[in-house]
Write a protein that binds this DNA or RNA. Structure first.
Lengths: 158, 158
DNA sequence: GGCGGAGGCGCAAGATAATTGCTCAGGCGG
DNA sequence: CCGCCTGAGCAATTATCTTGCGCCTCCGCC
């Protein structure tokens, strides 16, 4: 399973991060091989889990979600079971779109969207009242100035 | 351009957020219409900018980026020009994958990846020394417990 | 130096999907 | 009641995907 990722694979990954719906024909031309091996490489990258999936990027504001905010959560207990219990609860809140467990001061940081401030306030009240939550600090976003795919493709590896 | 988004469109958007590479034939079956109108709706949603693009989701750890962290940045000046100057600089740092301008205490929050702690430390030094930066607080992530697409599809609109 | 074997490419053909033009049904306003 | 507009479905064409196969290259091993 630990195939070596060569330069062609990196190019494939870059192109697919940039446009996940590119046709395989177009992809193969951009990376300089013919279509069949291109498709086989993509399939292999999917098999290995290097490509985890594909996603359409939507404009949340145009769909009525005008507010985006972070919520920093401190828990009462950081016992293993309590952490996973909180993470499970986070899965069930639709307004939470992403969540990271942190080291240090804050236990979790939640990226949230909401149609308006009132909805978000209601959610924060629910969050604050959730089991094991000690306190919550929120920060409203004014705008997102960068939204790049998770893997840098500008040669940052040492 | 302000077409009304009906139930079929919402279903299309849900499916494409879930799997951006689904074929149009499969998509049309899932949303209950035939292929041609399905494709026309997708094209329309793209035209209107509701669908901003498509992206492959990669596993950053398998590609050598073992560290993910947040950096909270306080600036010296919050003048319009200074904010955009900082945002421009953020565009040029490959390790920064997403960036939001915040209201309140912190001015910007940066989501960063790096191959290892050393690389991240070097980046933080650079960030701290950048023009107009007053101070930087960082928080390493232990793990990401949720990574959903940006628009909720679980009926959260009022 | 020559002999395999494995890996990976490209060609070609059949299957599947995308795309376009056309027709038709339903809802709305005149 | 009639015509128009919107949007669906059908059918045909074009493009893409997918698979099987042969070939070349790179190694390791005789």
């Amino acid at each position: 399973m630990a195939r070596r990722i060569d330069a062609i694979d990196w190019n494939i990954l870059r192109e697919l991060q940039d446009d996940g719906r590119i046709t395989n024909v177009e992809l193969s031309q951009r990376v300089g091989i013919s279509a069949p091996p291109s498709l086989r490489r993509v399939r292999a990258l999917e098999e290995e889990g290097i490509i985890k999936g594909y996603r359409a990027l939507l404009d949340e504001k145009k769909l009525g979600f005008d507010l985006m905010a972070f919520a920093m959560v401190h828990l009462v207990s950081q016992a293993e079971g309590d952490l996973t219990a909180f993470a499970d609860q986070v899965e069930r809140w639709p307004l939470v779109r992403a969540c990271w467990m942190l080291s240090g001061e804050t236990d979790f940081i939640l990226l949230c969207v909401a149609p308006d401030l009132r909805s978000f306030q209601n959610f924060v009240l629910e969050l604050t009242g959730a089991p094991n939550v000690r306190n919550v600090k929120t920060a409203l976003t004014l705008k997102q100035t960068k939204d790049a795919a998770v893997v840098p493709m500008e040669n940052t590896l040492p």
